[in-house]
Amino acid sequence: MSSTYPAIVCTENTLSGSPRIDGRRLAVGDVVSIVHDSLHHALDSHELTLDQIKQALGYCATLQCKSDNPLVFCHNCSLRREQEGPLDTSYLEEFISGDFVFVRGENFHFFGSMAELLEDHRGYDWWMIATNLLIDLRTELRDESARS
């Protein structure tokens, strides 16, 4: 693992080896998603420290995971989707009922069209979001410091 991000680890028996906060079952991609919704929610409800958040965002923004080569990338990341390969849709069927569209297969339901399912399956380019969040975080911390 990277000495630049000591709060981030990849261990085979936790989260299938994806990058996560040390001592937590919280993947780096989850941290990015949570902070994307609200920094204060991440700090308060998920009991993350500002240092853990900065490290998770930095790890993701710099694509450190590609160098660390985890067993699997974060579950909601487009890198994970590339790793898993294309979605097999051969057993799926799209249904339209009025304004309602859904995709169904044996033991599988997706509320939306086949095109939406494929887009959703592509995952998120979290590193791009993480980069913007780091910029926003630096600005927010600078502004808070100036007000103090």
Rank of each mutant, 00 (worst) to 15 (best):
G23V: 02
R25E: 15
R25F: 02
R25Y: 08
L26N: 08
V28S: 11
V28D: 05
G29L: 08
G29V: 07
D30S: 12
D30Q: 13
D30M: 08
V32K: 09
H36N: 14
H36G: 12
D37L: 13
L39T: 07
A42I: 10
L43R: 08
D44I: 13
E47L: 08
T49C: 03
D51E: 11
D51L: 04
Q52V: 00
Q55D: 06
Q55C: 06
A56L: 02
A56N: 09
L57Q: 09
G58W: 00
A61P: 01
A61F: 00
A61V: 05
A61K: 07
T62N: 14
L63C: 10
Q64Y: 06
C65G: 09
K66N: 04
K66M: 10
S67E: 09
D68L: 07
D68N: 09
D68G: 01
N69R: 14
N69V: 09
L71F: 09
V72L: 06
H75A: 08
H75P: 01
N76Y: 08
N76R: 12
N76G: 13
L79P: 03
L79A: 10
R81I: 00
R81D: 02
E84M: 13
G85T: 06
G85A: 09
P86C: 06
D88G: 05
D88A: 00
T89D: 14
T89P: 12
S90M: 02
Y91R: 07
Y91H: 11
Y91G: 09
Y91A: 10
Y91I: 04
L92I: 00
L92P: 00
E93P: 05
E93K: 15
E94N: 02
E94Q: 13
F95W: 12
F95L: 14
I96L: 06
I96W: 05
G98V: 05
F100V: 15
F100D: 14
F100P: 00
V101F: 11
F102T: 04
F102P: 07
N107G: 02
N107M: 05
F108Y: 15
H109G: 13
F110R: 08
F110I: 04
G112T: 04
M114Q: 01
M114P: 00
M114A: 03
L117A: 04
L118Q: 15
L118D: 06
E119F: 05
H121P: 06
Y124C: 14
Y124E: 15
D125Q: 13
D125W: 01
D125V: 11
D125P: 03
W127G: 04
M128Y: 13
M128F: 13
